[in-house]
Amino acid sequence: MPETAVTALWYRRLVLALLLAPALLWLFALIILPHLDLALLSFRERVAPRQYVVSLAQYRTFFGEPLYWHVFVRTALLSALATALTLLVAFPIAWIIAKLARGRMSALLFVVCLIPFWVSETVRTLGWMILLRESGVLPALLVHLGITRQPVELLYHDATILVGLVYTSLLFMVVPLVGSLESLDNALIEAAYDLGGKGWSILREIVIPHAAPGITAGCIVVFMLTLGNYLTPTLLGGKNSQWFTEQIYTQFITRFNWEQGAAFGFLLLALSTAMVWLGLKISGQRFSDVMRRA
């Protein structure tokens, strides 16, 4: 009797293992292995053609060279700013979808947020360039409306990068926000209003605490996407983009300096991990709750 029970247990475990096997194999072969390889790579230094020694030189270069530091911090700050802006823009949209719009209108708004993703990021960003370049549509419109006397170059500014990043990230903020706002009972808002609350105090005391997991989830996803974005900052920022992923690309592809690129990659990974941790600490959320929302 106990033997059959053991067999059954063993069988259940086997089934579970087989079900999970593709995902685990995928995770291991395509994510963990390359990262291990990169980690090893980042602790290597070239001393002569095809000769490498174990060293911390790549990390020393990063900390010793203000240039890389500058780009690193700049990328972090701009990503945080882009995340905050995305939240500000997405919140009213999510509110309308979750609370005000009904049926078809709500679906329509979702589609509006989804439309940018029907084309590839490259095409989308190139579209922005056509729109914003000096000889493009928007500067011509500004001249036509008499706002500027001559066409102005709207590309290659930090503001342009931010606009592009916010646009690209909007959906990833709206979806978790809608989820968390939809679960907010309207009666809570009415009750707060009934007890003397005004718009702002209700937002602060009721809506934001309720939506906190959704807000945190959206912010984490958008921050990570933004931090790791390559095309948008590079194309829209032009000569001044200075995005850290661009540094990584440059080290890997044009410098053939895989060791430095790997070190940069790990620093970026450390940064995004640290920011996620910080975000969870500040908002007092638990990682598992937040990830369920995302």
Binding site: V71, T250, R255, F256, N257
Partner: peptide
């Protein structure tokens, strides 16, 4: 040589 040039190009970019 390309490593030397790379450092210079990074500074121009920054």
């Amino acid at each position: 040589l390309e490593e030397i040039e790379g450092g210079v190009l990074d500074r121009v970019k920054a």
